[in-house]
């Protein structure tokens, strides 16, 4: 597998560290159902073959955090985004809908 880093260009996965599902977000600790939400956040995963949004960290490169969309049935990499941009967009959406 090779990941096209937005900063560095295409590199082998030996330069990257995997950090799992990029779609989960940390629950609100003060929520009355916080325990169940944290269990789901920490453990429960869809884990279905096909496109999977996941975090990778360019540990041996520019140190950028990435959100990679990868088909976990074939290892084909479908898109690479900066995790910072993804998080900023998510926060903006959350504010917009609030």
């Amino acid at each position: 597998m090779r990941i096209n880093c937005p900063c560095c260009g295409e590199r082998g996965i030996d330069e990257f560290s995997y950090y799992g599902d990029a779609t989960v977000t940390r629950p609100d600790l003060t929520s009355p159902t916080a325990m169940a939400e944290f269990v789901a956040y920490a453990f429960e995963r869809a884990n279905i073959p096909g496109p999977h949004r996941e975090l990778w960290y360019h540990a041996a490169g520019c140190h950028l955090w990435l959100v990679v969309t990868r088909n976990i049935a074939t290892h084909e990499i479908l898109s690479v985004e900066s995790a910072r941009d993804v998080a900023l967009a998510r926060n903006a959406n959350a504010k917009g809908s609030a």
């Binding site: 082998g12 996965i13 030996d14 999977h52 996941e54 290892h75």
Partner: peptide, 15 residues
């Protein structure tokens, strides 16, 4: 070390 259903791995772990 990454999610996979592909039943094959990559070179860094081979190394």
């Amino acid at each position: 070390g990454y999610n996979s259903y592909a039943q094959r791995g990559n070179m860094p772990v081979v190394e």
